[in-house]
Design a protein around this nucleic acid. Structure first.
Length: 263
DNA sequence: TCAAATGTTTGATC
DNA sequence: GGATCAAACATTTG
């Protein structure tokens, strides 16, 4: 459910409400979401002040007066301000200014603590939204292989997921199976511009709500209405009128226009 | 009953 | 050290 625009939307909703709050109490109920000892984790968080709420790739990062907490929403995670405890609630943070509820049906999400920050954040590539043209080129050119799996690799570029990779490749007219090494400077530049503009437009729309994504206030996004290829197999391409095709690539459903996107 | 789902990790193989 | 592919994680939905 959550890629960069969805996580950004959640962070923008949380930041003004959480900054300056103190965590009074934390409780957990899933060893899949929280891999370490619940009591040790709760003890470390109790009494900590939240200095800021930031996004790194698809991670929500709460900077605390000591250390930092990272929250990854996986596929079905929701972080709800003053949310109500439900069947799939896996964590609850009682703050001096409200309650933060972490809900996650599939439990692919992760909550981790680290000092000064969780170690896995160090493995992320440059942020897809803030990566400049030069950095984008240099990073991609260091790798071989097909462009789509590469863009999905968080260690290469952080933040893109299945929806936005398909949408950006369509906007740049690049075939998902294209080899990075075969892409011209011009194609790469188009791709960089496409990534940036698709992400910006998606953030402006509050993200994409395909099935369950909602922001910190429980509101759905609307960018799914602007998808050109994702989830539109069989529908006519908005540019050429040909049918959008769905294939499997790197174990992910992949949507593209065979006429507009050549290898 | 089967397929697919906004994600990531791990292990085998080349 | 990589790329590539399959499987696994757990649950819901059509």
């Amino acid at each position: 459910m959550p890629e960069l625009p969805e996580v950004e939307t959640v962070v923008r909703g949380l930041a003004p409400r959480l900054a300056g709050c103190v965590i009074r109490q934390a409780s957990f109920s899933s060893h899949l979401v929280v891999r370490e000892d619940f009591r040790a984790m709760a003890a470390r968080l109790a009494g900590r002040r939240i200095e800021s709420v930031e996004r790194r790739g698809k991670f929500i990062v709460l900077r605390l007066d000591r250390g930092a907490l990272s929250i990854h929403l996986g596929m079905t995670g929701k972080l709800l301000l003053d949310g109500v405890r439900g069947e799939h609630t896996r964590a609850e943070f009682t703050l001096d200014g409200g309650v933060l509820v972490y809900d996650d049906a599939r439990q692919f999400g992760r909550i981790e603590y680290g000092e000064p920050e969780p170690k896995r954040l160090a493995g992320l590539g440059p942020d897809a939204l803030h990566s400049g043209r030069e950095e984008f080129f240099d990073t991609l050119r260091r790798h071989a292989g097909r462009i789509k799996p590469l863009l999905l690799n968080q260690g290469v570029i952080a933040g893109l997921g299945n929806i936005y990779v398909d949408e950006a490749l369509f906007a740049a007219r690049v075939h998902p199976k294209a080899r990075v090494s075969r892409l011209s400077e011009r194609r790469l530049q188009a791709l960089h511009e496409a990534v940036t503009s698709v992400l910006r437009r998606a953030i402006a729309a509050g993200g994409s709500s395909i099935s369950d994504y909602v922001d910190a206030e429980g509101r759905r996004g609307s960018f799914q209405n602007e998808h050109c290829v994702y989830g539109r197999a069989g529908e006519p391409c908005q540019v050429c009128g040909g049918a959008i095709r769905r294939i499997e690539l790197g174990q992910r459903g992949t949507h593209y226009c065979p006429r507009c996107q050549k290898v």
